[in-house]
Amino acid sequence: MSPDTPPAARPRRRALRTTGLIAVAALLGLVGGTAVGYRIQADREPTPLPPLNQPGLAYPAKPLPKGEEPDPLPASEDLQAKAQGDLRKLLVPRPAGAKKDKFADRDGWQSVSEFASHFDRPGDALSYQLELGIRRVAVTSWATGGDRVSEIRLVQYRAGDELGAQDYVAEQQDYMPDAEFADSEGEPLEGSADGRYYVFPVQREAGYEDLYEARAYFHRGDIAVEVFLYDTEKIPEKDIRSLAERQLGRL
């Protein structure tokens, strides 16, 4: 033993060397076992795979003869074709006898910044809409009867990784049950997978007439739809449902 080497250091070094030898032996055993395993598999006959359970293909095995191809889907039934044109044409037309609402947009289009200005925090709303891929907004509104005002917005989003229309509608529906809004879960809109309509409690404020409100939210493809009704008299549930269903039918 060298005089400059502490005695206590020896057992530790031996322990390390013993551990190293065990590790090497284990590695050799693993490699050897793997090699033997591969050898056994190589000597065996291959096991056939089970047949694939594939139903008959829905399309013809061979192309149809020229002249027998099915007609393309008409534009009236093709949402993508309709949605790429003038979005304003998909809006429910103003009812006969209704007057154009004085707050309505003149040409039926609403800028993205104007759309965002309807939210409590316009700057955050604008950033969020840009993240969702908002493309354009078509809007119509009209006044009927005494103080009834109807408004519909079609908010179209760009194709991409984000499901803009679906996500936007889901977010709006999330806060509808809050007491300051509809204070209810609403009712499902027939013909729509996720659409719902809501009738709000009356809003009363000293010095003003009672305000009644109803809304509907749904989406179809890349278009999110918002339907609003305002009145100084109670709004029947069937009114918002009927208007929303008519707009859904246009899409």
Rank of each mutant, 00 (worst) to 15 (best):
T5E: 07
P6D: 04
P11G: 02
R13S: 05
R13L: 07
R13Y: 07
L16V: 11
L16M: 14
L21H: 12
L21N: 13
G29S: 12
G29C: 08
Q41E: 13
L49I: 14
Q54I: 08
P60T: 02
K62I: 00
G67E: 01
P70D: 01
P70Y: 00
P72A: 06
L73S: 04
Q84W: 07
K89D: 10
R94Q: 15
R94K: 12
A98E: 07
K99E: 05
D101T: 04
D105C: 06
R106C: 08
G108V: 08
S113W: 10
E114V: 11
F115N: 00
A116L: 01
A116P: 00
R121V: 14
R121A: 10
L126F: 10
S127V: 05
L130N: 06
L132Q: 01
I134S: 00
V139M: 02
S141T: 07
T144V: 11
G145S: 12
G146C: 09
V149A: 14
V149F: 04
R153P: 02
L154K: 02
L154C: 08
Q156G: 03
G160K: 03
D161P: 03
E162N: 12
E162W: 01
Q166V: 07
E171K: 14
Q172C: 15
Y175V: 15
D183S: 13
L189W: 00
E190V: 14
G191K: 05
A193Y: 05
V202K: 14
Q203I: 10
E205C: 02
Y208W: 09
L211A: 05
Y217A: 01
V225I: 13
E226D: 12
V227A: 02
L229Y: 02
L229T: 03
D231P: 04
K234T: 15
I240H: 02
A244G: 10
A244S: 14
L248Y: 05
G249V: 09
